[in-house]
Nucleic acid binder design. Structure first.
Lengths: 120, 120
DNA sequence: CATGATACATACTTTGGGGTAAGTACTTGT
DNA sequence: ACAAGTACTTACCCCAAAGTATGTATCATG
């Protein structure tokens, strides 16, 4: 069959989408199953790691930290660790993170309307 | 420790997220790399299949139809096929589909601000 | 001295979304 | 007769995201 692939189209597409589409830009940051949920829980104020775990029982610890780290490097949350004996770490939204809440609200509003059949 | 797994956590999580989180509900419909882009192109009016293909050169035909079909079954677009000799098929947004445009706008607005460093 | 709590880390496996490549049906143009 | 255009369909493959399971450091408490 002799492969003809020149370069990775996947990466090309990613670049294309990122450059051309702000929606993709947002998706890259809050896409995935857990990020919006985490953001939602942080919207009410700062939370400890263990509080988040209890608030979102279905998430695994690996996913929780992984996403928290990504949100941190994306400048959407701030991690604050106090150097105490049993670790005490809190997470809270940055201004950019808070700026996403209207987006989430808009989505929630549409979802409610749609689920109620407002459009059908 | 003797495993404790009861049933497929993946499906449970999906159910949990869908029930508890309207954002996930939205993501299920407009998530993925291409759906928002397709929606964007349809926001300006109805488009033929081949017009969409030309407007989004990076997408493959398989992805384009696959997503169009999904959008159709999700009641976000309407497919109209005229029974003519060279096929003539147009797609356009439903009211629910149009209802998503504010969401996309909110995302775009945030993305612009964030990319310009308005939050840093 | 071993258990529990806290906040992680990490090796391994699975799954499904997305990509590649090729084929179909029907008709017009040359 | 055969290529070209339209709107798909299908078989196959790959990789990254998500999940499973287990380990780590520190100290308090029974």
């Amino acid at each position: 069959m002799t492969a003809i692939k020149k370069t990775s189209t996947i990466q090309e597409n990613k670049q294309y989408a990122l450059a051309a589409c702000p929606v993709t830009y947002v998706m890259e940051r809050i896409g995935g199953y857990w990020k919006p949920i985490i953001l939602y829980h942080l919207s009410h104020g700062d939370r400890r790691y263990s509080e988040l775990r209890k608030a979102i029982p279905a998430i695994t610890e690996k996913m929780l930290i992984q996403h928290l780290k990504q949100l941190e490097t994306d400048q959407l949350v701030i991690r604050e660790a106090r150097p105490v004996v049993p670790p005490f770490v809190t997470y809270r939204l940055t201004d950019a993170g808070k700026g996403l809440l209207p987006v989430i609200d808009a989505m929630a509003t549409w979802a409610m309307k749609n689920m109620e059949g407002a459009f059908s």
